[in-house]
Computed example of a mutant assay.
Amino acid sequence: MNAGSAAPFTVVTDGGLDVYPTLLNDVPVAPFSVTFGSTSYRMTEITRETLYRELQTNPAHPTSAQPTPQDWLVALQTAGTPEVLAVTISAGLSGSHNAADQARQLLGPGGPRVTLHDSGTLSAAQAFQVHAAVTAAQRGLSVGQAQEWLRAVHQETELYFTIETLEYLRRGGRIGRVQATLGGLLNLKPVVTVDHATGTYTNVGRARSYRGAIQALTEQVTRRYGEGTPLRVALLFGDHPEDADQALALLTARHPVVWSDRTGVNPVLSVHVGPRALGVAAAPGAWPWDR
């Protein structure tokens, strides 16, 4: 469901978002792009399956690129409302927020009034914030009220992920070569989160096997919220959907899960984590506006 012209403002986001069918995530998107050698695809032009095949067969490692100011301009101009709330991937992880700011300046006096909001996160946790913003718009509330909800959702939501191999992070320059080599030799699988203060990745655990890392990831969720706390759980998977089943089963054994949904990691984010990955965004109980 789109924010629509009847709402006081439109929500727009970028390709850092992973979309959940049961959340209000159907909004205009400024897309990221993926480049293999001399061939570039917008994230809407390449399927996850094609990307995984390319990752495993193409000698050129892909690079990803943030939306350009022009990409943002197109997304902002589709709004059709006097105000736009643009929710971006963490500025600590991408220059998308800066590109959105440039686009805002290009709009000129005839364009909508644009408020930029740095989500401080990405993926499933960004999906929670987009859902909050669209909910506010649909209820006829102000951009200011929406931002209060966004901050509340960010504060209580944690995003954790693990990956089968460090190779794709190494190839993409996201971790040092030595660290990747050591991790590979010891067969260690990291558990990574997004630091709330910096909006950047930080390692919070590791395991000796991928299955062990899924277990460690879910235990991290329980440590954060306390066993027995009701949770909302958004699951992410790469080319093995059953990883999400395993994680949900582990969480359900320790928490009442009041809402859950799953989606595949989008093609651009998959460039960095590789084909096999698992992510969980978790938050306690009901949404802030339903309490």
Score class of each variant (00 low, 15 high):
residue 109 P to Q: 00
residue 70 Q to G: 06
residue 26 D to Y: 01
residue 89 I to S: 00
residue 99 A to M: 14
residue 115 T to A: 15
residue 113 R to K: 11
residue 102 Q to M: 11
residue 102 Q to Y: 10
residue 33 S to G: 08
residue 73 L to F: 15
residue 40 S to P: 07
residue 97 H to K: 11
residue 11 V to E: 03
residue 82 P to N: 14
residue 55 L to W: 04
residue 17 L to F: 05
residue 33 S to Q: 01
residue 109 P to M: 00
residue 69 P to L: 00
residue 60 A to P: 14
residue 49 E to D: 13
residue 97 H to N: 08
residue 124 A to I: 02
residue 121 T to F: 00
residue 13 T to W: 00
residue 4 G to L: 15
residue 4 G to Y: 12
residue 8 P to I: 11
residue 4 G to D: 13
residue 95 G to C: 04
residue 69 P to N: 02
residue 36 F to N: 04
residue 58 N to W: 01
residue 118 D to Q: 14
residue 30 A to D: 03
residue 58 N to C: 09
residue 32 F to T: 08
residue 87 V to R: 02
residue 121 T to Y: 01
residue 23 L to F: 05
residue 30 A to T: 04
residue 5 S to L: 09
residue 18 D to G: 08
residue 120 G to R: 03
residue 86 A to F: 06
residue 47 T to N: 09
residue 82 P to D: 09
residue 105 Q to L: 15
residue 116 L to Q: 02
residue 104 R to T: 14
residue 78 T to S: 14
residue 4 G to P: 15
residue 55 L to K: 10
residue 32 F to V: 06
residue 25 N to Y: 01
residue 66 Q to I: 14
residue 27 V to C: 14
residue 25 N to G: 06
residue 121 T to D: 06
residue 113 R to T: 12
residue 15 G to F: 02
residue 11 V to D: 08
residue 122 L to M: 11
residue 85 L to I: 08
residue 79 A to Q: 14
residue 26 D to Q: 10
residue 89 I to E: 01
residue 91 A to R: 10
residue 79 A to K: 03
residue 83 E to F: 04
